[in-house]
Amino acid sequence: MSRLVLGCMRIEGLDDGAVRALVDTALDVGITTFDHADVYGSTRHACERRFGEAAGLTGARREQVTIQTKVGIREGYYDFSREHVRRSVDESLAALRTDHVDVLLLHRPDALADPDDVAETLDGLVTAGKVRAIGVSNHTAGQIALLERSLPTPIVANQMQLGLGHAPMIAAGLAANVAALEQSVDRDGGVLDACRLRGITVQAWSPFADADGRIVLGDREHHAELNDALDEIADAHGVTATAVVTAWITTHPARMQVVVGSTRPERIREAAPGADLRLTRPEWYRLVAAAGYAIP
């Protein structure tokens, strides 16, 4: 799977040419993983359907890419029931115009799900050839361990919100044992380290936004110091600030993937160099501090 992932949650309104241009740009810069969910779009499967209609990923071209989708969010509640998961996967396959998805993620934890039942459902989809690998999204370390105990196939990914504007899964560890700092509170059970120990790839969603959903790039009202640092580091490496934000994630030794959810080919090209750019320790930690996190 490629270090960058093209997030497809906003493609519903694009015409065929725009979808193809986005996909072709992604492939040109080495992005071979495409991220979907059954709930993306104005109606269920709308973005998957737009992708299936327009992307043109058939035959040998289909085998060169990784298509992943998610299941489990319904209107007002979460649902990992056998009936819903099976039905939604079948609908996703039809919308995407493919006979399998490479990775199926459980979108958000369903507190009423029995891990044994969920594991049996997922294993059945793998055995049937409809799904090739299983992952999760927004799951804590404990939730992963609970599912993992029942699942005969390995969990390959956990998609979590992560970026310079929202980095508690990294920042908490930097402030470990500093009781006076709110940053030191572990809210996810050490999920990053837990994923690394299990060989689970963390996929960083919304990498350019802060906790309030604002894009940090160019936002000097709320993130002036961070943008100053980004611009200086970008100039030093001959790349854009978008690439530097991306590189802040890919420089981390966890070998995380970065989900770039843009409908603009130029943003994809701006981010792409960040897949291979390695920031120095002073640069990486400077960005941590500029983002407002303590380095005790």
Rank of each mutant, 00 (worst) to 15 (best):
A241E: 13
A194H: 13
P154F: 13
G13S: 12
A167T: 01
E148C: 03
A179Q: 13
K70D: 10
R61F: 02
G199F: 10
D114P: 12
T250K: 11
T98R: 03
D15H: 02
Q203S: 04
P273V: 11
A229Y: 02
R50I: 03
L104T: 10
A128Q: 08
V156K: 06
A26V: 00
A241V: 11
D99H: 13
L192D: 08
I170M: 10
Y285R: 12
E75A: 14
I67A: 02
C47V: 01
A211N: 09
D38K: 00
S262T: 15
Q143E: 15
L226W: 06
P154T: 10
G218V: 10
G59W: 14
A55I: 10
L226F: 05
I215W: 04
L57Q: 08
V103K: 07
S81E: 04
P168I: 06
P273G: 13
P282D: 06
L174S: 08
P152M: 05
V216R: 05
D231Y: 00
M169F: 09
N158Q: 11
H139P: 01
A180H: 14
A291I: 07
E63P: 00
P273N: 12
G213R: 06
D102P: 11
C195H: 10
Q68A: 02
T69F: 02
A60Y: 00
A229F: 01
D193H: 11
D28P: 02
W205S: 02
Q257R: 13
Y78F: 15
G274A: 12
G142P: 06
L181R: 14
R196H: 06
R20E: 09
A204F: 04
